[in-house]
Amino acid sequence: MSTIRQRTATGVAEARPATRVRSVKTSRRIGFVLKLLAVILATLYALAPVLLILSAALNPANTLVNQSLIPEGATLDNFRSLFNSPQHPWPLWIWNSIKLAGLTALIVVAVSALGAYAISRFRYRGRQAGLLTIILIQLFPNILTVVALFLLLQQIGKVFPFLGLNTHGGLLLIYTGGALGFNTYLMKGYFDTVPRELDESARIDGASNFQTFWHVMLPLVRPILAVIAILTFVATYGDFLLARVMLKSTDQYTLAVGMALFINDQFNQRWGIFAAAALVGALPIVIVFLTLQRQLIGGLTTGSVKG
């Protein structure tokens, strides 16, 4: 609301005679103060839980009861116990999450770049239908087929244990399959913006299709490759349902599953360690997002993967 008032004030000042200048100035000042207040409040709202978690992580008390904004006798004990808990192998869980998310991102980028190149550059029979199919398939998010995926892995696992339930191989297949369609579509849109003259001139110079793709196309589309890799990584890292259903043993858990089962309503006895784990688990993602804000937001608004 204050925005509007302020903006009107500016407009009015230009349109009306100068007698009103002083009142316009005060109302502009009031508007400005209100806005600053709103921003500060919103920032506090956004950061309060983060600050509380930070303080809990440093607080040696490890309980929710003793939660305070500034911890007494701050130590890194909670972080240390993350690495010394045989029942709850936090480093392993985080590594599992990073491994799965990283491999998924890598495979998705590679496979969807190949597909997007073909869809963007070749004209062939079935192209339109194929594109439409990809979009339609994407309407069915793979968390909806979780029952079928569970049974599929169960059956495959009887023959190939490394791709069955409770394996990262099986989960990786699910993640990559689920992320491919939409990202191919997203990438194809970006490929379309690269002028065709570039690859045509490469072709005239005798480059094969693959050489054109590798040496001409890929360097030009690096921004979208990065965006898709990061968004896929973040989405996979944050998956809870699929990992929860498919993984059964402690050493296979991802961070999401391990953390949920660790806290399991025992907030009061495990608050400090949980807070330390939350910080360690969230930090990489937060840093990536904040440093690449501008590049990522384009992908975010197209994807609307969250929120």
Binding site: A46, P49, I53, A278, A282, I285, L290
Partner: peptide, 16 residues
Amino acid sequence: LIIIPYTIPAFISALI
């Protein structure tokens, strides 16, 4: 600063 809640993985903030 305001964008930070969005960048934290949802499973972590939900538990917090």
